[in-house]
Design a protein around this nucleic acid. Structure first.
Length: 460
RNA sequence: GCCCCGGUAGUGUAGCGGCCUAUCAUGCGGGCCUGUCGAGCCCGCGACUCGGGUUCAAAUCCCGACCGGGGCGCCA
C-alpha cells in the first residue's frame, strides 16, 4: 500500500507521521493497556492484543483479548454490530492480533468487573490455524515443542511469569550490589586462551586465529581488582562446551559474578552473597506476588544466617546417612545434604573449605592444610554458586598454577596485574538460571532461559 | 563421554503381531444457542519419524539413521 501518512514537522530534526501506513483506522497511539483501563469510566477506549478465545453464543460472543496487562473481555452483540461485521469478528482465528475501539461498561458478569462493547475493530495480523501449540488449551505441551515455538509459549501467563520474576530478581540484585558500591562491568567473551581449564571451551575462528568463548569472567574480574575499582560485578553470558545433557545444564548461561577487594576473609564474600540473594528473593515475594500466584509457588526467603558447613563436617553428616564422599560432593551427596539441611529448616547453606586439590589455581590455600578458602553455595541440594578468597600473591599464584599443570607464561596478561599492587580479594560466580530454577522450583533450567542453548539446541 | 527409555492427527495421548477402516482429549471446519468465563450440545476433518529386514500378516518384532526424554560424570 502506498504511503498515505502525513509528515508533520515538529522541529528541525524531528518528525512523526500521524497515520500508520498500513491503513489502520483504529488509532494505536490512543491504545490503552488493559490494566490501565478504569472500570468506572464509560468512555471509549482502544485496546489491542491477541485473541485468546472466542466464545460464541449465537447472537452474543465473548472475545478474550490478551495483552501485557492481562485478559480483557470484548463482548460482541450481533444486533448492535450487524450480521456481517459480527460474523467477521467472531471468525477471527485464535492468537490473531486485533485492535478494538469500544465503550467500557461495568459488568457483574465479568471477573475483571468490566467489558468492552466494540464500535470499530481491525484485524492487524491474522494467525494461521492450527496453532503449533495451544496457549490456553488444557492439553499438556512438551518442553521441546514449547521451545521450538517459544514465541507462542511465552504468550502463556505461567511462562511469562517466570521471566517477569527473573527480571525482578535481577533488578533487586543490581540494586543490592550498587548500594554496596559495586560497579557493573562487561568483560570480553572472546578470549585467546581458556584460562581455568576444567570446563570445555567453544573454539572459534578469530580472523584466522584460534579463539574461545569465555567460560567465566574470572580472570578479568580479578585483574580489575588491581585497578582500584575495588568492587565489580558482571551479569553476562558464559559458555560451556560440556557434553552435559541434564535438567540443570546449559551451553550458554548467565553468570552473575562479583569480586571485592580488601576482604578480611571469604566470610565477607559469603555475607555479600547472602544479602544479595535475600534481597532478590524478598523482591520476588514483594513485587512479584501476582506472578508467584500464577505459578502457584509459595516462596520463602531462606532462613538466615545461611549455615556455613565445612566440607569435613558435610562429609561426616553424609557418612551418618550412609553416604561416602571423597574430595567433592557428587550429585547424590548434594541431594542428601540438601535433605539433611531441609530437615533443620535451611534451604540455603554454604559448604566451605573444600580440598584445595579440587579447586582452581586462583583459590587461596588454607596454609598447612589440605583445604582451601573456598565455598559453594548450595540451594535445596543443588550447587548454585562457588567462590572464595583468591590468591593475590603472585609468587604463590604461579606456584599453584604449576601445581595444577598450567604454564604461568600462558597467563602473562593476568599475572602482570598481580605484580604491581594487587589487594587481597575474593568473589563468587552464581548461575542465574539455576537460582531462578531452584527458587521457583522448576524442573528444568531451560524453563528459565528465553531461548536456551544446550547440547542439542541451537535454534531458535 | 557412559547407562536406561521413547518417537502414533497441529498439540497431548491409548493401542505394543491379525480384533486398527487406530482410542480419547484438545484443536480445526460446519450447525444450534443473547451473559459466557476450561461454555455446552450435534455433525465432520485430521496421525502410526525415515530406511532396511522378519512374517501369510507389522503402529506393534529386529537392525540402522534421525529426533526426543531421564540419570550419571562434570559443572554454575
Amino acid at each position: 500500500m502506498e504511503w498515505q501518512g502525513v509528515i508533520k514537522e515538529i522541529g528541525p530534526y524531528l518528525y512523526i507521521s500521524d497515520e500508520f501506513p498500513h491503513g489502520v483506522s483504529v488509532n494505536l497511539k490512543e491504545r490503552k493497556r488493559s490494566d490501565d483501563i478504569d472500570p468506572e469510566t464509560d468512555e471509549e477506549v482502544i485496546v489491542a492484543g491477541w485473541v485468546q478465545t472466542i466464545r460464541k453464543k449465537g447472537k452474543i460472543a465473548f472475545i478474550l483479548l490478551r495483552d501485557r496487562g492481562g485478559v480483557v473481555q470484548v463482548t460482541a452483540l450481533k444486533n448492535e454490530m450487524g450480521e456481517e461485521d459480527y460474523g467477521r469478528l467472531t471468525k477471527v482465528q485464535r492468537e490473531s492480533v486485533i485492535a478494538v475501539r469500544g465503550k467500557v461498561q461495568k459488568s457483574e458478569y465479568v471477573k475483571r468487573g468490566f467489558e468492552i462493547l466494540p464500535i470499530e475493530w481491525e484485524l492487524l495480523n491474522e494467525a494461521d490455524a492450527p496453532l503449533p501449540m495451544g496457549v490456553v488449551d488444557k492439553v499438556n505441551v512438551e518442553l521441546d515443542t514449547r521451545l521450538d515455538n517459544r514465541f507462542m509459549d511465552l504468550r502463556r501467563e505461567e511462562v511469562m511469569a517466570i521471566f517477569a520474576l527473573k527480571s525482578t530478581m535481577l533488578s533487586a540484585i543490581r540494586n543490592n550490589l550498587e548500594e554496596k558500591g559495586f560497579l557493573e562491568v562487561q568483560t570480553p567473551k572472546i578470549l585467546k586462551a581458556g584460562a581455568e581449564g576444567g570446563a570445555t571451551l567453544f573454539k572459534l575462528d578469530y580472523f584466522g586465529e584460534n579463539a574461545y568463548l569465555a567460560q567465566s569472567p574470572q580472570l578479568f574480574k580479578q585483574i580489575l581488582m588491581s585497578t582500584g575499582l575495588e568492587r565489580v560485578y558482571e551479569i553476562a553470558p558464559a559458555f560451556r562446551a560440556e557434553l552435559s545433557d541434564t535438567t540443570r545444564h546449559l551451553s550458554e548461561f548467565t553468570s552473575l559474578d562479583f569480586e571485592m577487594s580488601f576482604i578480611e576473609s571469604q566470610d565477607d564474600v559469603m555475607d555479600a552473597v547472602e544479602e544479595m540473594l535475600d534481597s532478590a528473593i524478598k523482591a520476588a515475594i514483594e513485587d512479584g506476588e501476582k506472578y508467584l500466584e500464577i505459578l502457584g509457588i509459595e516462596l520463602k526467603a531462606p532462613k538466615r544466617p545461611y549455615p556455613r558447613i565445612s566440607f569435613e563436617e558435610a562429609k561426616k553428616m553424609l557418612a551418618e546417612k550412609g553416604k561416602q564422599v571423597e574430595n567433592d560432593l557428587d550429585t547424590e551427596g548434594e541431594k542428601i545434604l540438601g535433605e539433611i539441611m531441609a530437615e533443620k529448616g535451611y534451604d540455603a547453606y554454604f559448604v566451605v573449605e573444600y580440598p584445595e586439590e579440587e579447586k582452581p589455581f586462583y583459590i587461596m590455600e588454607k596454609d598447612g592444610t589440605p583445604w582451601s578458602y573456598s565455598f559453594d553455595l548450595e540451594f535445596r541440594g543443588q550447587e548454585l554458586a562457588s567462590g572464595g578468597q583468591r590468591e593475590h600473591r603472585p609468587d604463590v599464584l604461579e606456584e599453584r598454577m604449576r601445581k595444577k599443570g598450567l604454564d604461568p607464561s600462558d597467563f602473562e596478561f593476568y599475572l602482570k596485574a598481580f605484580k604491581y599492587g594487587m589487594p587481597p580479594h575474593g568473589g563468587v560466580g552464581i548461575g542465574v538460571e539455576r537460582l531462578i530454577q531452584k527458587a521457583l522450583r522448576l524442573e528444568n533450567v531451560r524453563e528459565t532461559t528465553i531461548f536456551p542453548r544446550d547440547r542439542f539446541r541451537l535454534v531458535p
